[in-house]
Amino acid sequence: MQRVNMIMAESPGLITICLLGYLLSAECTVFLDHENANKILNRPKRYNSGKLEEFVQGNLERECMEEKCSFEEAREVFENTERTTEFWKQYVDGDQCESNPCLNGGSCKDDINSYECWCPFGFEGKNCELDVTCNIKNGRCEQFCKNSADNKVVCSCTEGYRLAENQKSCEPAVPFPCGRVSVSQTSKLTRAETVFPDVDYVNSTEAETILDNITQSTQSFNDFTRVVGGEDAKPGQFPWQVVLNGKVDAFCGGSIVNEKWIVTAAHCVETGVKITVVAGEHNIEETEHTEQKRNVIRIIPHHNYNAAINKYNHDIALLELDEPLVLNSYVTPICIADKEYTNIFLKFGSGYVSGWGRVFHKGRSALVLQYLRVPLVDRATCLRSTKFTIYNNMFCAGFHEGGRDSCQGDSGGPHVTEVEGTSFLTGIISWGEECAMKGKYGIYTKVSRYVNWIKEKTKLT
């Protein structure tokens, strides 16, 4: 034993070699072989497995989906700052455009905790909710729209109204504003409101030439003092309507412009014939205590009207009353817009006519005020429907199939267009061939041609 100890002390290297040989010859039971080890760690190889990531292109799944990435790591994937920024906006807080917040056709661009709407022409605001041009839906104005110097929408209202708090709607500024039905039992019968379409306001006024200088022999019209197929109006439903009495009662109609003036057809009036105007009328054979009678003290036909040349060209006249009318729910003026808007309103496509005229061709006159909704007829169809001249200051309205029309005794009465609950004068009943005849239409004086003249002559002093 002493000898062994001496050998170990003198030859430590020998001992180490012996131990190493023993270990190498022993069977290893701690580690699995290569094949079995792979069965336990069965993990798919990654895209760049075996390579240094710093030297390969980034992978979106590896960089940002398996674990949260930084902007720089995302930049490695896209290799483009702009594309990385677009991805980053949604990656950080989701897609803010998912709810489609942009209105009126706006395009949404996502941002971090926010979004941006790219608005089409005519709109602005956070969600493109603000109209900035009158060309689109009248700028959301209830009545009139004008573009300011910086191309912003400025709404306005006709006389007797003021802008509401929203700067879009119009509200009454006087007790009985024009064009409004205020009798409670008839307010439910107000005709369907007309909503502004998209309009090209630059070209809204037709490029028409008034044929002022045409000389033409007097034409022989049949029954051209021209509501057939209409309905009984309720008291106060058309408070701007008046009836004219002269040699015979209810020979023509008219509309209240203001307390002192009536507008009617020029062919209705004769110099030297006494005319009485009755406002607030409903049943011409009954006294309903809503009527107001006034005498006409002055007749002003349009300066281009000449019955000797043509009885229905420039067929418009103004009547001055001896005493002002007292405005109330049964006696209310009709609204008159400017030339541009009167023309736009007419193009809405349908209007209402009213009167006490004959209820059928050569038949009896109506006792109760009649009204009828009539569609506008395109000019080409209008011209083809008659052998008589249709001037540019006239328009056609009615039904091709016949059966409904204005008729004798309705002449001078109103053709009105309702705009968001307020009625505007767009025409004056003038003439036609018979009444409600198939293929024939009622012919009306186009008020847009005469609004400046009306307003100039009827100013209240």
Results as ranks from 00 to 15, higher is better:
283 N>G: 08
5 N>I: 14
152 K>H: 10
5 N>W: 08
169 S>Q: 07
36 N>L: 09
183 V>D: 08
156 S>C: 05
93 D>S: 15
378 D>G: 07
365 S>L: 08
259 E>T: 06
445 T>F: 03
204 S>F: 14
234 K>C: 04
306 N>F: 05
226 R>D: 11
188 K>N: 15
34 H>F: 12
267 H>L: 02
202 V>D: 08
187 S>E: 09
251 F>E: 08
269 V>W: 04
116 E>T: 13
319 L>N: 01
429 I>T: 13
417 T>Q: 04
234 K>M: 07
165 E>V: 12
404 R>Q: 07
385 S>N: 12
346 L>N: 04
188 K>E: 10
454 I>Q: 01
232 D>P: 14
339 K>T: 10
85 T>E: 13
335 C>V: 00
46 R>E: 02
55 F>I: 07
353 V>F: 03
49 S>E: 15
395 F>T: 02
394 M>C: 04
192 A>Y: 11
169 S>N: 11
6 M>W: 14
375 P>H: 14
308 A>L: 12
175 P>G: 07
11 S>P: 10
280 G>Q: 02
305 Y>K: 03
27 E>K: 10
346 L>P: 02
3 R>V: 14
168 K>L: 11
273 V>F: 09
397 A>E: 01
126 K>P: 13
322 D>R: 04
240 W>E: 00
9 A>S: 13
296 V>I: 06
333 P>F: 00
12 P>N: 12
152 K>M: 13
131 D>N: 14
95 D>N: 14
140 R>K: 13
352 Y>D: 04
135 N>Y: 08
271 T>R: 13
8 M>Y: 14
344 I>R: 13
116 E>K: 14
28 C>D: 04
261 W>E: 00
277 V>T: 03
373 R>K: 15
370 Q>W: 03
398 G>I: 04
260 K>F: 08
324 P>A: 10
354 S>A: 15
366 A>C: 06
23 L>N: 02
419 V>K: 04
101 P>A: 05
249 D>V: 07
458 T>G: 03
383 L>Y: 10
274 K>I: 06
364 R>C: 04
2 Q>K: 08
432 G>D: 10
45 K>D: 00
369 L>G: 07
33 D>S: 13
77 V>L: 10
246 G>Q: 05
239 P>E: 00
441 Y>A: 06
170 C>R: 01
115 Y>V: 04
338 D>S: 10
375 P>Y: 11
25 S>L: 14
285 E>M: 09
446 K>F: 01
230 G>A: 15
449 R>M: 15
439 G>I: 03
384 R>C: 04
352 Y>E: 03
136 I>T: 05
246 G>A: 09
141 C>S: 00
182 S>T: 15
269 V>F: 05
170 C>K: 01
366 A>V: 07
22 Y>F: 14
145 C>S: 03
251 F>T: 07
198 D>C: 06
344 I>E: 13
214 I>C: 13
341 Y>K: 05
322 D>L: 02
239 P>N: 02
272 G>F: 07
441 Y>Q: 03
29 T>W: 06
199 V>L: 08
77 V>A: 06
19 L>Y: 10
399 F>G: 09
200 D>Y: 07
303 H>T: 09
92 V>S: 14
204 S>V: 15
125 G>E: 03
125 G>F: 02
136 I>Y: 13
169 S>W: 06
261 W>C: 02
200 D>M: 06
423 S>A: 11
220 S>C: 06
289 H>I: 10
307 A>W: 07
233 A>M: 08
225 T>G: 13
199 V>S: 09
130 L>T: 13
127 N>S: 11
352 Y>H: 10
290 T>V: 06
453 W>N: 01
411 S>A: 14
124 E>D: 12
170 C>P: 01
117 C>G: 02
44 P>A: 14
373 R>E: 06
25 S>A: 10
232 D>G: 05
21 G>R: 08
304 N>Y: 10
338 D>V: 04
391 Y>H: 14
183 V>A: 14
326 V>P: 02
65 M>N: 07
131 D>M: 13
296 V>E: 00
179 G>Q: 00
138 N>W: 08
137 K>I: 06
191 R>T: 11
35 E>S: 13
223 D>G: 09
155 C>G: 00
399 F>R: 05
397 A>W: 02
116 E>H: 08
401 E>D: 15
245 N>T: 09
271 T>Q: 11
215 T>H: 06
244 L>F: 05
409 G>F: 10
339 K>A: 15
79 E>W: 05
255 S>P: 01
356 W>K: 09
90 Q>R: 08
394 M>E: 02
306 N>W: 04
19 L>E: 02
79 E>K: 07
153 V>F: 08
143 Q>I: 02
232 D>W: 14
421 G>Y: 04
419 V>I: 13
327 L>I: 14
268 C>K: 01
368 V>S: 07
315 D>V: 00
329 S>K: 12
399 F>Q: 13
256 I>W: 01
379 R>H: 12
354 S>E: 03
11 S>C: 13
131 D>T: 13
410 D>F: 13
344 I>F: 13
146 K>S: 08
4 V>C: 13
100 N>Q: 13
94 G>K: 11
106 G>S: 05
446 K>L: 04
92 V>T: 08
333 P>N: 04
446 K>V: 02
378 D>H: 07
246 G>M: 06
243 V>Y: 15
440 K>R: 12
326 V>N: 08
274 K>L: 06
287 T>P: 09
233 A>Q: 07
42 N>A: 10
190 T>V: 15
150 D>I: 10
213 N>G: 10
141 C>E: 00
128 C>H: 03
68 K>M: 06
424 F>H: 02
422 T>H: 03
283 N>Y: 11
355 G>S: 07
189 L>I: 15
88 W>E: 03
155 C>W: 01
159 E>L: 08
223 D>S: 12
8 M>T: 12
95 D>F: 09
362 K>P: 08
40 I>W: 05
340 E>F: 10
210 I>S: 14
90 Q>P: 06
136 I>Q: 13
24 L>S: 07
213 N>R: 08
91 Y>M: 06
377 V>E: 02
122 G>K: 05
287 T>C: 07
366 A>M: 09
259 E>M: 05
81 T>D: 13
191 R>K: 11
350 S>T: 15
181 V>I: 11
303 H>P: 10
188 K>F: 13
171 E>Y: 09
250 A>I: 08
168 K>E: 07
264 T>M: 03
131 D>W: 12
449 R>C: 14
279 A>L: 01
164 A>R: 09
447 V>R: 00
231 E>F: 08
95 D>K: 13
128 C>E: 03
236 G>T: 05
461 T>V: 11
443 I>E: 02
182 S>F: 08
229 G>F: 14
315 D>S: 03
230 G>S: 10
404 R>E: 05
16 T>F: 12
228 V>A: 14
324 P>M: 05
87 F>S: 02
267 H>R: 06
435 C>L: 03
96 Q>M: 13
143 Q>G: 01
254 G>E: 00
423 S>W: 15
420 E>P: 01
91 Y>T: 04
134 C>E: 03
133 T>E: 11
226 R>T: 15
294 R>C: 01
410 D>A: 10
250 A>R: 09
421 G>T: 06
135 N>V: 12
